[in-house]
Design a protein around this nucleic acid. Structure first.
Length: 279
DNA sequence: GTTACGACCTGCGAGC
DNA sequence: TGCTCGCAGGTCGTAA
């Protein structure tokens, strides 16, 4: 599932291949791919030049030599692949940008948006101070220069929801999804259902620093791939799933204490934790 | 204002 | 073998 490390891996891959290229054509093939507010606007990117590929949390966008940007969210199963136009069309191909510029016969000249579960989307929108409209409500992620640890800790400690809900809230801090939330809480030895108000400043800081360090390691490994739902721009899987300590490990012994990892239902999804380490 | 929860969606795998 | 159903989960809207 694409969380911050997976999106950052994709961003780096895109940056390498597409910056400086011109968009020759843009088309979408599924009614849910383009955000309703952007319907009919994808074609506007035709003729523009890609200046940069940016990211905040799980949101990614292409800066263009225009007064609008192209935003992409991968949702649960979205992939942005850079391929040659003569490659076969994937069965869940939702949109395609053809690239021009300095290309040769073997150049990868297409950006393809592939999305099995159609939770991902693209949109063409205005940007203010370098941040697209749909990303403005998203908080800084822990890797951003302006990320203010102290104010995020204070914000979390004022909440009356569970710590896991708080760190999944993209308006508190961005980039963390279900996998890295479970991993961060395991590393900081904190139970996912503990109410934020009951945690000390030190404990909340520990959760955030654990989240940052686990995501940093995941970026080094190219992200987490369980199945076909996440690939980098070259269609390759990441291998951080081998390093997961609790997510998807229910019934397996905790690598710290040997207790069996538990899985519980949590807000329409699941939480994994060690019942002994995370009381 | 804050929090919880359902809806959206599709493919896979388990169970019958 | 074929069918049904539950599960995966990011975001948004709505209800409490």
């Amino acid at each position: 599932m694409p969380e911050l490390p997976e999106v950052e891996t994709v961003r780096r891959g895109l940056e390498q291949y597409v910056v400086g290229k011109k968009v020759v054509s843009a088309e979408s093939f599924h009614r849910r791919t383009i955000k309703p507010s952007s319907l009919g606007r994808l074609e506007m990117v035709t003729g523009s030049k890609i200046l940069a590929v940016k990211r905040r949390g799980k949101f990614l966008w292409f800066e263009l030599d225009r007064d609008f940007v192209l935003v992409a969210h991968l949702g649960m199963s979205g992939q942005l692949l850079v391929q040659q136009s003569n490659a076969f069309d994937q069965s869940h191909l939702r949109a395609r940008l053809r690239l021009g510029g300095k290309l040769n016969r073997t150049s990868k000249d297409e950006i393809r948006f592939i999305d099995q579960r159609t939770f991902g989307w693209l949109s063409v929108e205005e940007s203010s101070e370098g941040i697209p409209t749909s990303v403005r409500h998203i908080a800084f992620d822990p890797f951003e220069e302006n990320f203010d640890l102290k104010s995020v800790v204070n914000k979390i400690r004022q909440k009356r929801c569970s710590i896991k809900s708080a760190i999944l809230n993209q308006e508190v801090l961005s980039g963390i999804g279900n996998i890295y939330a479970d991993e961060a809480l395991w590393r900081s030895k904190i139970h996912p259902e503990i109410i934020c108000e009951d945690l000390s400043e030190v404990e909340v800081k520990k959760v955030i620093s654990s989240a940052k360090s686990v995501m940093k390691l995941a970026i080094k490994s190219g992200g987490t791939s369980f199945d076909e739902q996440y690939k980098n721009v070259n269609g390759e899987s990441g291998y951080f799933s081998r390093s997961l300590q609790v997510y998807g490990q229910q019934g397996q012994p905790c690598s710290r204490c040997g207790s069996a990892i538990h899985r519980i239902a949590f807000a329409n999804r699941s939480s994994h934790f060690c019942p002994r380490c995370q009381r």
